[in-house]
Design a protein around this nucleic acid. Structure first.
Length: 496
RNA sequence: GGGCGGAUAACAAAGGGGCUAUGUGGCGGACUGCAGAUCCGCAUACGAGGGUUCAAAUCCCUCUCCGCCCUCCA
């Protein structure tokens, strides 16, 4: 199957062909580091993480570059407010933001070039733009002349004439055309600045991405992406700069991620509804958040809400149950050859191919997830029907699960760990356990639960349903699901 | 105003001329002391109006509504 990608540049799904056989070079616009990473960043970078992982799954060698904007008006403003050096300030938030994404389980890019460390390349590129007649200096600033670049507007599908209508011309403006944008800005006192042919100053925003992507990936490269909001003007300007300066094609496929909303509203500072990754992770397991993202197509705007996360949590739990069943089956080392085993074996292959064709179709993760649930249902039916599931088949199913799940960064946990709430849960567990049994101090979670289940069995034998149900409810409340089976009670840790 | 993209059951969300999407929730049944999990069954869909077609949620036209961008926001 060929991989199809929706290319924002052509507004069509296209068969993907890499510039260089077997290799993918991708560049994604990174964060401006002046506050903590938020859920919108997470959504975008998780989407690209999946895209990168799927390329790898298909056997490509991927080079993934994501820039860090550490020189910027907002950074300078924030740093000045706190009375610290802007570059120190952005350095601190670079670490914080990347850490936040780490905690969410988003794999890091191969390279994070920083604007502050690529100034020379930006100056060179700006010089080249001026030399080719696409840029001009105006009172210490340097601007790109959009009128000179005849293809300006090709990414966003806009014509310069259309853009011009309705724009007010500011006579004080140093620009020739209101859509001209800064390549280099002269610096004011207190701002970080670098020496340049046009005096001390700092680069404009757009130039950094043109410079870094061509420096680290070469032109043309395969994938360029970012949030939908960056399509215009940022990405439009990147194309203009890079192609004007080099005469080469810039990027082949443009991928834009749909912007997340919160309870149906745009996430913004003015509404005050920005959700930080840190806050999010104090309430939800990272995997639940990732699963929530995977359930929306990357081009659609997902709507974040507690209810949506709750929903994802339940779905994910359903998937983990079958994974645990497969693990039990593997442990039994059963070699039976009932016919149902063969049917299940076939279902595994179907699962793999439907998952792949979903991903091949413009990284359709919701459809891939749907194929996972189809497989979960088949698996549940299998375990319902077959007396002695064959361990090798279970192993094969489990392997497939892990391998495909890895593309979405899901289902990789060997055993659910108890996360950071471990201590608190154990404390509560011991507290209520002490009213049913003795010697709970110093015992592990597993031991305490076993003691409670023993107490519950005693109660059940005496038909003391109140006690039995109370123990079960309390365990459930703490995230431990109790099930009475023919072989006695079993427990498992639920998703939280 | 210009550009881009949407409207699918209670909610979320894929699909895109004939084939049960899927998840959560709801209803009924099996199992259970009762639950839970799981299984079996059921219900509720394609914004409105036209058109093309043997057949339209899907293609075409018109309309209504919504979101995003055109402000250095992923």
């Amino acid at each position: 199957m060929t991989l199809k990608i929706y290319n924002s540049l052509t507004r069509k799904k296209e068969d993907f062909k890499p510039v260089e056989k077997g290799k993918i070079k991708m560049y994604v616009c990174g964060m401006t580091v002046y506050s903590d990473a938020h859920i919108g960043h997470a959504r975008t970078y998780f989407a690209f993480d999946i895209i990168r992982r799927y390329f790898e799954y298909k056997g490509f060698k991927v080079t993934y570059v994501q820039n860090i904007t550490d020189v910027d008006d907002k950074i300078i403003a924030a740093a000045n407010r706190e009375g610290v050096d802007p570059l120190e300030y952005s350095k601190k938030f670079t670490t914080k933001c990347l850490d936040d994404l780490d905690h969410l389980g988003i794999r890091r890019a191969d390279l994070y070039p920083k604007a502050s460390e690529t100034i020379d390349d930006m100056i060179k590129l700006t010089e080249e733009i001026i030399k080719k007649g696409y840029g001009y200096e105006s009172d210490g600033d340097v601007y790109f002349s959009v009128e000179k670049f005849t293809e300006y507007g090709k990414l966003s599908g806009q014509k310069l004439d259309d853009l011009m209508s309705g724009v007010r011309i500011d006579p004080e403006d140093k620009k020739h055309n209101p859509f001209d944008f800064a390549l280099w800005k002269s610096s004011k006192p207190g701002e970080p600045s670098w020496a340049s042919p046009w005096g001390r100053g700092r680069p404009g925003w757009h130039i950094e991405c043109s410079a870094m992507s061509s420096k680290f990936l070469g032109l043309p490269f395969d994938i360029h992406g970012g949030g939908m909001d960056l399509r215009f003007p940022h990405h439009e300007n990147e194309i203009a700069q890079a192609e004007a300066a080099t005469g080469k094609e810039f990027a082949r496929y443009w991928i834009h991620i749909g912007l997340l909303t919160i309870n149906g509203e745009k996430m913004s500072k003015s509404i005050g509804n920005i959700v930080n990754v840190k806050d999010l992770l104090s309430r939800w397991e990272p995997e639940v958040v990732r699963f929530f993202f995977a359930q929306a197509h990357y081009r659609s705007p997902p709507d974040f809400s507690e209810k949506a996360l709750e929903n994802s949590k339940k779905g994910l739990d359903r998937i983990y149950r079958i994974k645990e069943k497969l693990e039990e089956c593997i442990a039994k080392k059963e070699k039976s050859s009932e016919d149902a085993n063969k049917e299940f074996d076939e279902a595994i292959s179907e699962f793999k191919s439907s998952f792949e064709s979903a991903m091949d179709d413009d990284f359709n993760t919701p459809q891939a997830v749907s194929s996972i649930f189809d497989f979960v249902n088949t698996g549940n039916r299998f375990f319902e029907k077959v007396k002695n599931p064959n361990s090798n088949i279970c192993k094969k199913a489990h392997d497939t699960f892990i391998k495909l799940g890895n593309i979405l960064t899901l289902f990789q946990d060997e055993k659910k760990d108890y996360g950071k709430i471990h201590d608190d849960i154990l404390k509560q567990l011991r507290k209520f356990a002490s009213s049913y049994t003795t010697d709970v101090e110093g015992k592990t979670i597993e031991d305490v639960i076993d003691l409670l289940l023993e107490a519950r069995e005693e109660a059940r034998n005496k038909k003391d349903w109140n006690t039995a149900d109370s123990i079960r409810n309390n365990l459930d409340r703490l995230g431990f699901e109790i099930q009475d089976t023919a072989e006695g009670p079993v427990w498992r840790k639920k998703m939280i």
